[in-house]
Write a protein that binds this DNA or RNA. Structure first.
Lengths: 202, 202, 202, 202
DNA sequence: AATGAATGAGATTTCATTCAT
DNA sequence: AATGAATGAAATCTCATTCAT
């Protein structure tokens, strides 16, 4: 069994290497721009091996996108923080996570392939975008339950918050190959949160 | 001169036909997915002719994108309309224009080509997105000058409005190959406007 | 008739312009490298006109080569010059004529097209090379008749002279895109002539 | 290692086949006239394979030319041969080698590409022409050292010999698509050698 | 006669994918 | 399982030549 296990681990390493190389190339050059041969070379693997692990370029692409789809950590917030500060921190975290995952580039390639891979796009949208709304909406609902926020449609509220922030920071990045977190985003976030609390705070 | 004019008109027709066919194919299949030969065939023209009119596929692509870049009409508003109604109408028009131009698909392909054609992306962003902010900000500034709205940073305000609306209607469309204007958008728009006026109305 | 003549002269001008432009492009880029469109543009004429004057690229090529085929002037030599000086002058003139006509480049393109245009090559060889041997052989024969040179096969003698000179100056130029007459060629020519006279002088 | 060796041998065979087919087509049709697809077909290989082995048509062309560039064997001469016979044999060998290598056609295509590939032309000239002068000059220098020939500039002497021979046999072949060794060349060679020995023999 | 525009037929090159071992 | 080499199919672009006026 030792041999078999060894083999499996080698194989798994290659699998991971291909995935990683694929991610790099797809993010850098887009779907059509990334060449299977380059990905294989980067992963230090033959093209034939690449195709043993993923039966087509598209399948690798899908795997790359799905793989990026990790859970997002929502950090615990200090009890004594103000509501405003907490919300700013949450939204800031949202933005940081986005840039840390290089999500802009990822979304870019998924968007590019909407006509060619609609299912992937829908899935990605759900897992990457909708589920993040949901997490924030859950928080909002809790705050409403606690009486800290006025009752309102939490999904609507979240889209108000997130929409403004995306409009400021993510939408421009989508067109600008930016990969770094914008500076001073917190100021704008705070302004957005302040308006939100004027509307829905108690 | 009849000859010259005739030739010019024939040539211009072909030029336009190529542009139109290019638009169709690029929107449908993306930049790399669209084949010059197919575009030429669609335009009922030889590939050579296509290349006489546009010296490369990229140049045709840029022309297609720039061509979509028409001025947006802001319709006049009835004098007796309420502020809320007026703003809803303006934003609704924003959305209608977006879908009528098939701007989602257009933005999609531009986004896809950000790594390959960064200048085009920047230009498109400026003309398609920033300049539309500006038009709305101008309106807001006028309303502030009239005392109809409280003084505030009009660009921030516009991003709040537009951000929410995009979040609801444009961002999902980006991932969903939707080409039709969503129904009942006006309800959400009105809700957004109401919140906005609670914040900045007088 | 005035009108007709005018037209004819215009047409002849265009013909000449095309020929000249053709010569330039063929010499610079070779047969396949020269584009009909470029030649036409250089001649300030439409491609269609070019094809009215020469029914194919090849025909133009042939015309260009034939056109270069002018008579060579053999300058008169002073009576009191020594035999050696006279022969050096004749051979030097041979070389000068060669470079002035840009014959290296011309021969180059003819040589290149030997498989494709064997007749042209044969004709060019005869008019450009053999006929020049003949002229020199005639001179040699006269000198033999005068008793200034020993009786010998004048064609063999000429090939000895010309062969040495070509070996030094023309053969290298064939491979080097050289267009200018080499300097100090006269020294080598004199040395060749001296050897020749040691063999065949009286 | 059996696998590796097998693969290498297959690959090397294809490499050689492409080279050979390339040589054939380039010699027959010149550089631009030869189509990569035809060469591949002739070599019984896909175009893609051709491009795996040579990354461009030009690279294949250069390889073909360089490949022709084998060392020339100078055969040993019988000790009891006369100087004249030896020299005739050497020069005859020079000519035979030239025609056996089909060097005329090779030089033709290199000459054709002088404007497009000047480096190749220079290299070819050096290895194909200059280095052959050198070999002959070395022989001449030895003969001078032995006292068999009078002291003189061996390079000049070699150009006299070679020049005359090229003038008779190679220059005409350049224009005539001749691929076969001329007959009775030995007679002319002997005549040239005789003159040479009258000048430089002891 | 002249021309601006058009084109059919190819040219080179690339790439996702498979084969033989 | 892994691979080096091979490939069919297609893509972009060019060019000599012709057409419509």
């Amino acid at each position: 069994m030792g041999l078999e296990e060894y083999r499996r681990s080698v194989s798994e390493n290659k699998h991971a290497a291909i995935l990683k190389a694929g991610r790099k190339h797809f993010l850098e050059h887009g779907y059509s721009g990334a060449a299977a041969a380059d990905i294989a070379r980067e992963a230090d693997v033959s093209t034939a091996t690449l195709y043993k692990h993923f039966s087509s370029k598209e399948e690798l692409f899908v795997a790359v996108v799905k793989d990026a789809d990790h859970e997002e950590e929502i950090p615990p917030f200090p009890d004594n923080a103000s509501l405003e500060d907490t919300m700013v921190a949450v939204l800031n975290n949202y933005l940081i996570t986005h840039f840390e995952k290089n999500a802009t580039a990822l979304l870019r390639i998924v968007i590019a392939e909407v006509p060619g891979a609609p299912d992937l796009a829908r899935d990605t949208f759900n897992e990457f975008i909708v589920s993040r709304y949901q997490k924030l909406a859950d928080i909002v609902d809790q705050l409403i339950a606690h009486g800290t926020l006025k009752p309102h449609d939490s999904h609507f509220g979240v889209r108000l918050l997130i929409g403004a922030i995306k409009e400021h920071y993510i939408w421009p990045a989508l067109f600008d190959n930016k990969t770094t977190m914008p500076e001073h985003a917190e100021d704008v976030i705070r302004q957005v949160v302040k308006d939100y609390l004027r509307l829905y705070g108690t």
